[in-house]
């Protein structure tokens, strides 16, 4: 009998269907609208600013919206899209076809990746447009401050947007890993938010591990430091100047680190899902 090999075409089909399903969900649209409102409304928030340069403040709001709503979207969408297949028993029909379970998991992740790419791409473009427009106005108003031309590097804005996306992709893979063995969607979502917090604080565990004297402290902090990725590695949004570009070597290392965690999370999700009773 002709063997059924792992097929990227089937992965693409499952991913495409996942994106279509997610894009029609109210939750996705709600997060997009809220994030867009925040980016566009940042101009009005700046009245509360105490000394942060205006463009810096606008960028903060934009990337803040991307990180906050993007994380919420990734966690809820990943868990929901996975459990809707299980609970509505569409997974039953799908996996009764000649489809590998790995194709199902990878397809779901690629779908979430597509969804978050759409989200981050949309917000990055909008944020760049807001910054460009406002920077142009400030250049007219304060020509002395822009003697060297524009101060915002839009390549840095795009890079920071890409880093946000990579971070969300890792989060998606980890939520998918949790969902692959979790019994309920609620558990997967709550754990997803916990993972998000731990990943942001992972560097503290790393520092604690490096300094810990006790065996227990070392073991506990090592477990956290090794099991969870350090999301602060992706924090590029603090600078918008081209001079602060971290260098291609640094970029390659951070990107490969992120993709490594995506691969690890996905492989383990496949491992956990392989024998799951549908």
């Amino acid at each position: 009998m002709r063997p059924v090999r792992f097929s990227l075409a089937r992965v693409g089909l499952i991913a495409g269907n996942t994106v279509r399903e997610a894009a029609r969900q109210r939750l996705f649209n709600l997060f997009v609208v809220l994030a867009l409102m925040l980016v566009l409304g940042a101009r009005w928030f700046r009245d509360f600013s105490f000394g942060a340069p205006e463009l810096r403040f606008l960028a903060d709001c934009g990337f803040g919206a991307m990180a906050f709503f993007g994380s919420a979207l990734t966690i809820t969408a990943t868990a929901q899209l996975f459990f809707s297949e299980i609970e509505n028993r569409t997974a039953l029909t799908l996996l009764a076809k000649p489809v590998w379970r790995a194709e199902f998991i990878v397809g779901k992740l690629v779908g979430v990746a597509g969804l978050t790419l759409l989200f981050c791409g949309l917000l990055t473009v909008l944020l760049a447009a807001v910054l460009w427009t406002r920077e142009g106005a400030l250049m007219q108003e304060f020509p002395d401050n822009f003697a060297q031309g524009r101060v915002v590097s839009y390549a840095m804005v795009a890079g920071a947007g890409a880093m946000q996306w990579l971070k969300l992709l890792i989060l998606g893979a980890l939520v998918l890993l949790v969902a692959s063995f979790a019994q309920t969607q609620t558990f997967a979502i709550v754990t997803g938010f916990l993972v998000l917090v731990i990943c942001h604080l992972q560097h503290l565990a790393l520092a604690a591990y490096e300094r810990s004297g006790s065996l227990f402290g070392m073991t506990a902090s090592a477990a956290i430091a090794w099991m969870f990725p350090n999301f602060q590695v992706f924090a590029w949004a603090d600078s918008l100047a081209a001079a602060d570009f971290p260098g291609w070597g640094q970029v390659a290392r951070v990107v490969s680190y992120g993709l490594g965690y995506v691969g690890l999370g996905t492989a383990l999700a496949v491992f956990c899902f392989r024998k799951r009773e549908i």
Partner: peptide
Amino acid sequence: ATGALAAGGFTLQTWVTPAWAVVRARQ
């Protein structure tokens, strides 16, 4: 799965250490 995550994470952590030092110094 937990063991594999910790082992894989340890490798990735080692790999990213120089980049993390740069990010930390910048922020």
